[in-house]
Design a protein around this nucleic acid. Structure first.
Lengths: 340, 340
DNA sequence: CTGAAAGCGCTTACAG
DNA sequence: CTGAAAGCGCTTACAG
């Protein structure tokens, strides 16, 4: 019964671990950081001491000498209304936070202040973080593009215009997602396929229209009518109404979001048009709206939590100096339900 | 045109600021940390140098010597379904993150792993953070209560049972919120006031029933029937149906959440019961459900973003060694719309 | 009121 | 393959 465990108060240091293992603290450091040059028996001794003392490295000390903050920021728009209505952010954040917790970097949330957008950029350039994830969709993005050679950055959305300098983006392949959803309609024998598109000034909106068109062309069909919405249920309902008013004969609709599909469904029900018998529907996004719709929607699951994880993973590789491709696509899967 | 600004590469240090201001780095440190003992003229010189060099203190170095991590964690449940369906977490997080950004502490999200709950607790006790905010409602809370004398902690919800040791909680006063919503019904002349309660195994559920009862008793009225739901729209609809089936004559309903009120509204519409003419409704929560309900709901705004801010503020006071009361109530306000 | 100096807990050339 | 030593950028007794 040695008093090896009931040591002094305070966290154990490298020194203490070294003393217990009978080596210098330099060696302990090398073991902890996985340098291959340490003799196996010393490695074992050190590991045993680490376990016995429950040693945890001091992040600040390491951070100071490595000149790294060990922090990364996720920059999210302040726009509260959007933030709340859309499960997207919550899901990305959750995926990113969970992945980050398995690394030695800490994820912090940086809410863009609408009142003082400079503040956010200053935070990033003042050396508070090793890198940043940018989720903003719109106008503020170019300002971040400029910072991307000062501090490593990964974007969660493809920019509409070519950027002034090369950037890194992680996103789903929206074209492929739309192809999958549209092709499913075609596979089920539908031939007159309309689309309720997203806003055509967003990358997602445009890409999903492209995918819809491509799948139809590939099948040798003619595209049906297109009506654009804003990704919300109400806009989907309005677009559906316009589609019906247009008088084209359609037997299927590809909706660029589940929220819009849910809105469209309401309109179809009001007109006693049966889904999927009269009109089949597929969409994009697997969330509350797709599962609680009536009928439940066949839709493309974007696996947004995974996207959050890949965003962090990619940023860490960038920070580590790895060669990272300009675009990383995260996989999506079609989920079959009752709307087709 | 001196080259005062185009100094060497790398961030300026205390030393550099001191050199420019003509003082020692100890003095610079004192100025930056606001010690009152520095001569005004030196303070000015230092501030000028800081501004000129755009000096930003190195967090890691400060953290190392102060033996503080300068980080706080917000612990949130992994339960994704709940997380997504409920705007509550997003709003608390946003409020907390924005407030934290104005302090010298960084907020990090710690998602509780259902698979390995120990991991979260180890993270907190391993010295990774100076303190933690606990938002979990249920079973895991007691485990955190135990940690609360190892690491400073503030809870976002009142525990149901008395806790083993004194803890700190920041929450709205649910009793008062319910009193306000119920009293508003009374003020408008309603006398037979039912309630759609929240789950009676939660503090919020219980407190809101108490408030409803208290307001009615205070007015010398008799309480109407009570039906409990689970805070969701579907459960509110069912509770409303049971209220109608019960046969009691009621002219008003206090719903313990806007989501339940929205569900109740559907049922009333299906029965052609007019709101507010036949039955008036008030509720709690000012969110998407309360504004998009038909008619829009008179409801109590819980100002959840502010709650997030106060959570952080309270935790920082605790970390700073201040005397913090066991309960801090955040204010709520009644928002009048068309449901009464 | 201010400065010189020690020290926070690590990592990493530099010798050997 | 390993250790002694320097140093990362701060704060804070300790003198004066």
């Amino acid at each position: 019964m040695t008093n090896d465990d009931s040591v002094e108060a305070g966290k154990p240091t490298l020194e203490a671990v070294g003393a217990l293992a009978g080596v210098s603290r330099a060696t302990v450091s090398r073991v902890i950081n996985g340098y291959a040059t340490v003799k196996p028996e010393m490695v074992d001794a050190v590991n045993a001491a680490v376990a016995q003392l429950r040693y945890v490295p001091n992040r600040a000390a390491r951070s100071l000498v490595k000149r790294r903050t060990q922090m990364i920021a996720m920059v999210i728009p302040e726009r509260t209304a959007e933030f709340f209505a859309d499960p997207y952010f919550a899901e990305v954040i959750q995926g990113a936070a969970m992945y980050a917790s398995s690394t030695d970097h800490t994820l912090t949330l940086l809410i863009e202040s609408d009142a003082d957008p400079e503040k956010t950029r200053r935070y990033l350039t003042d050396g508070n973080v090793d890198g940043a994830l940018i989720l903003s969709h719109h106008s503020s993005a170019p300002a971040y593009v400029e910072l991307s050679d000062t501090v490593p950055m990964v974007f969660g959305v493809r920019p509409l215009e070519p950027t002034a300098r090369p950037i890194h983006v992680v996103d789903v392949d929206n074209v492929q997602a739309a192809v999958a959803a549209t092709r499913h309609l075609i596979d089920r024998g539908r031939t007159n396929i309309a689309t309720i598109a997203g806003p055509l000034d967003t990358a997602a909106g445009i890409d999903r229209v492209d995918g819809w068109r491509a799948a139809i062309a590939h099948a040798g069909l003619e595209p049906g009518p297109l009506q654009a919405g804003t990704f919300t249920p109400a806009s989907g309902a309005e677009a559906m109404q316009r589609l019906l008013d247009g008088g084209d004969r359609i037997d299927a609709v590809f909706a660029a979001s589940a929220q819009m599909a849910a809105g469209a469904l309401e309109v179809l029900r009001a007109h006693s048009i049966r889904v999927p018998y009269d009109i089949a529907i597929t969409s994009i996004d697997n969330n509350y709206f797709s599962t609680s719709a009536n009928p439940p929607l066949t839709t493309v699951d974007l696996d947004t939590a995974n996207k959050g994880a890949v965003l962090v993973q990619t940023l860490l590789r960038l920070i580590g100096g790895d060669d990272v491709p300009p675009f990383t696509a995260v996989p999506t899967t079609l989920v079959e339900r009752q709307s087709v």
